[in-house]
Computed example of a mutant assay.
Amino acid sequence: MSFAMIKKTIPTDRSIAWISLVPQLLLMAFLFGIFYILKVKEPFVFVGFTYLLLSFGLKKIFLKNHNKGIVLTKEGKDMEAIASFKKSASFFSKYSWIDRYRYITLLGSSKYSYREMALINIAFCYVQLGEIEKAKEYYQNILREYPGNNLAKQYLLKLNSPQA
Rank of each mutant, 00 (worst) to 15 (best):
V40T: 08
Y146P: 00
Y155S: 00
G76E: 11
K77V: 06
N160H: 12
A118P: 03
S93Y: 04
S2T: 15
I37C: 12
Y51W: 11
Q140R: 05
I104L: 06
S88H: 07
K60M: 14
E137F: 07
F46Q: 10
S15C: 13
K8R: 14
M1I: 07
S161R: 06
M1H: 13
I19H: 05
N65R: 05
Y139R: 01
L25T: 14
A89Q: 03
I142Y: 00
I132R: 06
S88V: 01
L159W: 03
E116A: 00
M5F: 07
K41E: 15
I70N: 14
C125T: 07
I19S: 14
R100K: 09
L31G: 02
L58F: 04
T12L: 10
F92A: 00
F62S: 01
P23L: 06
I70A: 11
L26R: 10
F46I: 05
K8P: 05
V71R: 10
P43F: 01
S161F: 07
I6E: 02
S20N: 10
E137G: 12
Y51D: 02
K111A: 08
R115W: 03
Y126A: 01
L157K: 15
I6G: 10
Y36P: 02
I70R: 10
H66R: 13
G33T: 02
L106D: 05
F44K: 14
F44T: 07
T9D: 13
K64P: 00
L143P: 08
T9R: 12
S90T: 15
A81Q: 12
G76H: 08
I120S: 04
M117Y: 00
K77M: 06
A135K: 02
A29E: 14
S55W: 13
Y155N: 04
N160A: 07
I34Q: 13
E137K: 08
R14T: 10
F30Y: 15
S113H: 08
